[in-house]
């Protein structure tokens, strides 16, 4: 969104040049990939030609499989993340505001955060089965920690003088949370979401790979099991697109919400 660029008459040429500079390596690698695969220098199973993968991607998209599995993955990750966001922000903000809550949660967060959350997947399979609910709860539990910790720390770090300013202008202690603490802590809270978002996808993929039940992770593993490597690659393309889209979306949301920073 560079406004000044429009005023520059050489904008098109220079931007085209910089585009070439920045993607030529990708083009080389992709062309090499296609050539090597077409010539059969690498076994089809390891590295199918790019064109085959794209055909497969289109096929899976047109027959609805890709969209359905992407929907399953996204639904699990996002619902889990939404639950974690509510509880994480609640616990984080309360911890920062209340000594008793902090006393209770601090050691739990200290112990809980370093647990490689993925290792709990078999536990969740035992407790809640292998269905959507189990996956969603797993995502919620796993993404709770970064959300809570960022919410807590950013709430704690709100400048005392901002609070004082509000108080001198007549803000009561009860309203201080909404009027000052939350807006001031918002950048840190959003950072927590930005950390938690990829984590929600990681947990969902691994759970799907281990336990099945549809989703892009399961689609990949099915590809491995049936020796259809094009399906694995096609699923990874979809994952990449989703990853890029979500990343963009979060950045845009951050830009919108925090245009004042």
């Amino acid at each position: 969104m560079d406004v000044t660029a429009d005023a520059n008459p050489r904008f098109d040429l220079s931007s085209a040049l910089s585009l070439v500079k920045s993607i030529y390596s990708l083009v080389i690698v992709l062309v090499l990939w296609e050539a090597v695969a077409q010539l059969g220098l690498i076994h089809y199973y390891f590295l199918p030609p790019l064109s085959d993968i794209i055909m497969r991607f289109v096929e899976l998209t047109l027959n609805g499989q890709m969209l359905y599995n992407a929907y399953l993955t996204l639904m699990r990750a996002m619902v889990g993340l939404a639950i974690a966001s509510v509880f994480g922000v609640l616990v984080g903000v309360l911890s920062a505001q209340n000594d008793l809550v902090d006393w209770f949660f601090d050691p739990i967060i200290k112990i809980g955060y370093p647990v490689p959350i993925i290792s709990l997947i078999p536990v969740f399979m035992l407790w809640f089965g292998i269905g959507d609910i189990s996956k969603i709860i797993m995502v919620a539990v796993g993404t709770f920690w970064p959300v809570a910790i960022n919410a807590r720390d950013s709430t704690r770090q709100v400048e005392t003088k901002l609070l004082w300013s509000a108080k001198m202008m007549g803000t009561s202690d009860r309203r201080l949370l909404w009027r000052v603490v939350m807006p001031a802590a918002m950048p840190g809270i959003l950072t927590g979401f930005q950390i938690a978002m990829p984590l929600s996808l990681i947990i969902t993929f691994v759970f799907e790979m281990v336990a099945g039940g549809g989703g892009l992770g399961a689609l990949e593993i099915a590809g491995v099991r049936s020796f259809e490597s094009t399906q694995v690659y096609a699923a990874i393309i979809a994952i990449m697109l989703i990853g890029i889209a979500l990343d963009r979306l979060l950045r845009m949301a951050r830009g919108r919400l925090l245009h004042w920073t």
Partner: peptide
């Protein structure tokens, strides 16, 4: 205040 303490979101 010396450091203004303005609300940056307003």
């Amino acid at each position: 205040f010396q450091n203004y303490a303005l609300f940056p979101w307003r």
